[in-house]
Design a protein around this nucleic acid. Structure first.
Lengths: 206, 206
DNA sequence: TTCATAGTACTGGACAGTCCAGTTCTCGCT
DNA sequence: AGCGAGAACTGGACTGTCCAGTACTATGAA
């Protein structure tokens, strides 16, 4: 037998998760009904309830299941070289990757989804934010601390500096995406945000 | 007759608006039902429907009705004195008032409400953002342009500078409030955000 | 009187979650 | 390989509940 052929149960489980993710992202928690999910997963409703106790559990599992996707970004911000003469272009590269990763439509939809239901699921919102964005910023703060120790940067409060970096970079596109349906950022705009944000950041912290 | 004694109808209208505002803010659009609103307004359900065609119209009217509250903030950002030697403290004062105005719990709740329903009411989200925050930032950009012309500041792109100012200042508290239920900012924290944000901004743009 | 309103019952539809009868898969055992 | 039992799955009907919006009668204000 092949070493990892998923069992039927595992396949169904995954199909339900995939379908539910799509529907929740598109229509929100309240706007989604379980029959839709079952139909999209090509699965009977009974099976959905066999795998997930109820709608809320399914929702929570999906949202929290996305937090491990930020691992890549954590690696990204941890790997900024500490050389003074290439600092600007290194930060610019980081900024571009940051923007590229976050402006993927799915990330914004998920962000909206979590914010929208922060009342109903308070812990979910807090956890998602902590496991996600704050982890990245914490790592970025470590990087800034390292750069500061090497004398390349001057960040007395590295975590605050990391937030400033993020704020300079993300304030515009994030707000735009939160209030309008689709992202609508051209590559040129993103590049401009990155350039201007990095320039302002370096003026403040170099 | 007295010049402005509201008619009974006008009183009911206002009572419905007030009640609906409270319920929508507390429980969101989907979580709110019309019976609750009627009860809270001490009005019959029929009367609610006499004044507002349906739930969506009521919701839209409430959300859009709040945009004129930003007029005060527009005045605020238009009135920054253009003297170089007091620039830092002037901006700091502006930053504090900005933070104070935005971290009022109601503003954040409203923001969450709009974001949460940006899918269902796409135009509403766009309009609210444009009439609200973008108007303030546009005015702030004008101020920065004026300061730049006087040589007090160097902002080649005043609107971008205004966004940077906002991002430096608001990124932390806004995100915290979006994902957690309650704001939870101490005065000391807000002051620290203002000081650090203004310092970074001036380093970049003076 | 006349109009807005209160109070309340009602309609129609949506939807979470359950139940059940019959089918298909899985896997250990021979 | 072939068998058989138990687990998982299907499809659809069903329950109970919630809720937007309507209908209707009675009441109080102008």
């Amino acid at each position: 037998m092949s070493e990892n052929e998923p069992t039927r149960s595992a396949r169904k489980h995954q199909a339900i998760l995939d379908a539910a993710t799509g529907v929740f992202l598109a229509k929100g928690f309240a706007g989604t009904n379980m029959d839709d999910i079952a139909k999209r997963a090509a699965v009977s409703k009974q099976t959905v309830y066999k795998h997930f106790a109820d709608k809320e559990k399914l929702f929570a599992e999906i949202v929290l299941g996305t937090t491990d996707r930020v691992d890549g970004m954590v690696d990204l911000v941890a790997d900024v070289p500490a050389e003074a003469d290439t600092l600007e272009e290194n930060l610019h590269a980081l900024a571009r990757q940051f923007l590229a990763a976050l402006t993927g439509a799915e990330v914004f939809q998920l962000r909206r989804l979590v914010i929208a239901n922060a009342d109903t699921f308070p812990e979910l919102g807090a956890t998602w934010y902590e496991q996600g964005f704050e982890r990245v910023l914490g790592t970025l703060a470590d990087t800034f601390r390292r750069l500061t120790e090497k004398g390349v940067l001057h960040a007395d409060e590295p975590l605050l500096a990391a937030h400033h970096f993020a704020g300079l970079l993300l304030w515009i596109p994030v707000n735009r995406a939160m209030f309008h349906g689709s992202p609508q950022h051209t590559e040129a705009e993103l590049d401009h945000y990155a350039t201007a944000g990095v320039r302002a950041f370096l003026a403040a912290y170099r």
